[in-house]
Design a protein around this nucleic acid. Sequence first.
RNA 1: GGAGCCAUAGCUCAAUUGGUUAGAGCGCUGCCCUGUCACGGCAGAGGUUGCGGGUUCGAGACCCGUUGGCUCCGCCA
Length: 594
Amino acid sequence: MRIANQWRSHHCAQLRAADAGKNVRLCGWVDRRRDHGGLVFVDLRDREGVSQIVFHPEEHPEAAEIGKALHAEDFVQVEGQVTRRPEGTENSSLATGEIEVIVQSVRLIGPCSPLPFPLDGVVENEDLRLSFRFLDLRRRKMLENLKIRHRVSGAVRAYLDAQGFLEVETPVLSKSTPEGARDFLVPSRLTPGSFYALPQAPQQYKQLLMVAGIERYYQIARCFRDEDLRADRQPEFTQIDLEASFVESEDIHFWVEGMLRKIFRDVFDVDLALPFPRMSYREAMDRYGSDKPDLRFGIELYDVGEIFRESDLKVFRAVLDQGGVVKAVNGKGLAHIAASELTGLEDLARSLGGKGLAYVRVESSGWKSPIGKFLTAGERDALARMLGAAEGDLILFAADRWDLACEILGRVRLRLADLSGKREGNAEWNFLWVTDFPLLAYDREESRWTSMHHPFTRPHSEDLPLLEKGHYGEIRALAYDIVLNGTELGGGSIRIHEADLQQKIFSVLGIDPETQEQRFGHLLKAFRYGAPPHGGVALGLDRLVMLMAGAESIRDVIAFPKNRHGVDPMTGSPSEVEPKQLRELGIAAGRRDR
RNA sequence: GGAGCCAUAGCUCAAUUGGUUAGAGCGCUGCCCUGUCACGGCAGAGGUUGCGGGUUCGAGACCCGUUGGCUCCGCCA
């Protein structure tokens, strides 16, 4: 690596005892200054690390004068002689700890104003960090995160290249398809009144590349979705996107597993055990109440409906009689959690649309519960047996529609795991494939069927008759999600490659033939020109790097993210534009009423 | 759009049940200090307690409103 030039002869982590006696030139930021009145020590920092430089007032008074006045984060260039540190003053925790540079001359090239926040401590105010992102990124941890991200990208490219994938770029100025997330729109000046859309994903382009005979495509692709933000959601984010022809689900699993193994080997020197376990969507929901279960701990859900089939407990009986389910989960050793915690769990259940949350504290004196007096001895025994309940446990029940009961207890399960300390600090890398998702889900509010994954997902061949019969909710998709420690890293599917099947699915989704032609005509047309079977997957690069870096937000692994309101406090984007710009585009900007 | 929690110095946080002049650490300014590495010591500056109203003899604390922040729900094919 080329380092030496007119600015510096070495970087700040380079010098060792063997360099003693050399005259060197270093550039860097003042990481810390220790002023002893006479002697002044400065830790000089660059990207690579830190070197201690020393100002001696007697030998180099002019340099020492400047050294005394240095501040944190000043950018300086120093010239001096590498010297072994005096016996007993070496710093073993520093790579350059055996030596120091005796400064002969120093130039203050970039003085630094007083810092708006400390670079070596916790800062809660994230907008302040984002406003000074160029300072925030000087933090060691942030640099480390960007390095991890860089190495992950490198491993991805190396692996997929070796597997015969071609990196192909697809347009950022793309076409709006109202299905799915809200599009970001870009007005067209050359076609006034018309808009490009920024891609939510390169989905249709990569399928067209398969029709084009590329066979194996990948891209580290920027994607855009105009939805509300979260800790793990940004309006623009990055996917590792790939697609291949003449493949089955197993091929995609093989590549994703191989790619992740290479990533973890290259970045952490960790060997992941392959293949990753597989679990059907149905089983994941039944046992863990989530389509992205965290399997680093147990706390499984049980269907206790049979126990209450003839029960006097009306809240359970009514649900069962209407075809719902009663499910339960056992919080081992949590019988004595605070009442406020229990209330919090009930609030959680209600916020998800549930009616409430029944509970039993299993205590030495018996079962303490609002529903306790309705439980017969037989029901208690059966519950205790099924849930393995013992003194000190907390049993929680949800009685509702199957999907809602599962979801509620799935969320309760995570809270119970937190209360038991089973999630935080758990260093395991637990990967899981979730398979056999339903192809379609019924949207109760809009009274229509929607795609669980996306409309290009292929149904299981043996479930195709269900499509003809109109049993849409029972059709399984050739779709799969990859989950890491309870976070959905990505998902994919085998796609539809026949125009007629694709049209049929569109119709089920309520898109009439005319609209199909308008929005997806290019794809349907392509399918009539020798389309190969194909499938693929997309992984969220930001989320993967976030988990690998131990970060709490994908904002910590993106150099210049937006805040929760989609605003970049540093540049002030989004911003208003000149009237002239709008006139050229033929659009008028409305102002939100205050 | 909805719910809950929060708002005190540049940063991170204190401030008995409502009671005198709102404190500490870091940072900042000045002075002292020749082997530190989170150097140390002395002194100083820095606050309309987010904003507006109310209750009270008295409000950082209690009440109402408002603005902003955080978390969750909705949304994210």
